[in-house]
Structure formats: C-alpha cells, structure tokens
Amino acid sequence: MEGERFFDNFLQLLPDCQYLKRIEFGEFSFVEFDFIVFTCEALYIFEIKHYRGPYLLEEGSLVHQYNKKIIHKNPFNQLNRAQLLLQSTLQEIGVDIPVISALVFTHPEFTLLNPLALKKQGTVLLRSELNQLKQKLKAGCFKRNSHIMNKLLRKSSPCKNKYIKVERLPFDTMKSGLRCPKCQKLTFAPPLARKRLWQCPHCKHELKQVDLIHHNLIELFICKGEPFSLSEAMKWCNCEKGNNNQHKMLYRILMTTFKHVGITKDRRYYLEMELW
C-alpha cells in the first residue's frame, strides 16, 4: 500500500493526468490493475512493488541477496497477464489503442543487482527513474479518454461473480436513514458532522458516530450488491444535500475504510466480502 500511495502522489503531480487505480477485470478469475494511465498515444499499466533491500533475478524469480528468500516468482507473468486482459477488454468495448506495461519498484532502498536480467523481460523502473515518465504520460485527448475510462469502469468487476448471489429488493425502494446496530430501528435525523457520539432515540444505545456511519455504509453495499457513489452514501445516511461538512465526513470514512475504483465523480466504493 505504501508503494501505491507514493505512485498515486506522483501521478497527481502530473498536470491533468487521467488514470484509474485498483481496478479489476475478469469473468471467473480476476486480475487487479494497480494503475492504468491514459494518454493520447497509449494506455499504460503500472504494477507497483515496494520491496526493500538488494535483490537478484534467479531462474525467473526475485530473490533476496542474503537470505535467498523468493519474494516473487517471475513478476512479469502477472504483468503480461494483465496486459493481455486489458487488450482483450479494450477490443470488447471497441477501442483500438496500444497498451504498454511496466514494473515499478518504489522503495528508495530497493536495489536490483542484475538489472539487465530483469529488464530483458520487460520495462522496469526504479524510484529514481520515474522522472522519465513525465514526458511519456503527457496529458491530452481528455474527452476520448474519459469515454474509455467510463466504459472500463462499467466492465470492471470488483464484486461481480465473486460473491454468493442473494435475492434483493429493488435498491430504489429501500428506506434511507441511520439504522442502530443494536435495536435495528431507523432514525431519519441526519448525522451531525461535529458530534462524536450518537445515541439511538429508540433504545438509547450509544456509540461513536463514525462507527455508526461505517456500519450503515456496509449495509448500503450489501443491500445494493455493487459499488456505490458518494452521493448514494449521502442519500442512504439521510445527509442534507449541499451540507459540505457531512460530505467531507462521509468522504473521509469511505476513503479510509472502503476500497474504490475510478476517480473524482466516477469513483465507486466497495468492500471485498462475501454477501450471504
């Protein structure tokens, strides 16, 4: 995660960079992409590794120099599989654009003792070499790339086919509001952004408001059965439309406790859990 955060911050510093992170594709077996970056010339896949210490490539595997522990069996197998799957997905949605992939080592104390052996298999970038990406990842073709990103988001499957199917009521027919984890009764009062403790008006049970909202957001994901947006979370928790404090509070909870795909307005939140 530390490596992904570092690379995410690096991309955010690039002017108008368009990218997706932690997005999955697949029907029966799934491939997660750390980052897909969109430019006019190509789509770039970046697989992030945050290993520390001196490593060698021996018989296709990354091996620590001193303890000879295999840290990764041929990291390019995973990357090549991801590239083939993305190319196939692009063909399905009618997009013809090259796909380029690279393995990125983000730890400042990572050392590759036989770099040529690894670089013969594909593109490898160390943390000190990331500046060379700035020109390659030059922004442009915003309208076209936004169109491709939206199509890929609709094809992504962070939850689809991974969980047990359950019968659900139509999502739009479900009542919104905050449900007490103890008595399971709804209250329709909106959460107070500056209040730390919440008391159920029915059973007087007290808990942290953050925990109450988190509990209700999990319920939202289970009831909907697929990733949801921040606006849907606001509506589900009965937040006041246009209330910036409530908006910030829910956004903070979602970003720290849920996984997500997409960026800005297209971002959707989900959990990796079995839905019984």
Results as ranks from 00 to 15, higher is better:
L11H: 07
P75W: 09
I253Q: 04
W236S: 03
V166G: 00
S61G: 01
R81L: 15
L271R: 12
K138P: 02
P201Q: 02
M273Y: 09
Q65V: 13
L113F: 12
W198I: 10
K235C: 02
C17F: 11
C159V: 14
R179Q: 14
N245H: 13
R154T: 06
R154Y: 10
T256C: 06
K241H: 10
Y163W: 11
F7L: 15
K241R: 14
K151N: 05
Y51C: 03
M273P: 00
E59M: 04
F76M: 11
S157M: 13
L20W: 11
R194Q: 12
C183S: 02
L85D: 00
E4F: 15
E206G: 02
L169G: 00
G60Y: 13
V166Y: 01
L62G: 02
L192G: 00
C183I: 12
K119R: 15
S231K: 13
K68Y: 08
K155Q: 11
P98G: 01
L137Y: 07
I23C: 06
V37L: 13
L152T: 03
P227F: 08
F30R: 09
L130K: 08
T89H: 02
K143S: 07
K224S: 04
A233T: 05
L14Q: 07
Q132E: 05
V210P: 00
V63F: 11
N77D: 03
Q246P: 09
I253P: 07
K204D: 01
S29M: 06
Q121R: 14
S29C: 06
M149K: 13
D8Q: 13
L11T: 03
E232S: 04
L62D: 00
L153V: 10
P54H: 06
E219G: 10
N243H: 13
E129Y: 04
G53M: 08
P115K: 08
L14V: 08
F10A: 02
L62S: 03
W276N: 04
G3F: 02
L84C: 05
L217W: 05
W236C: 05
P191S: 02
Y66T: 10
N145K: 08
C183W: 14
E4M: 12
H72P: 03
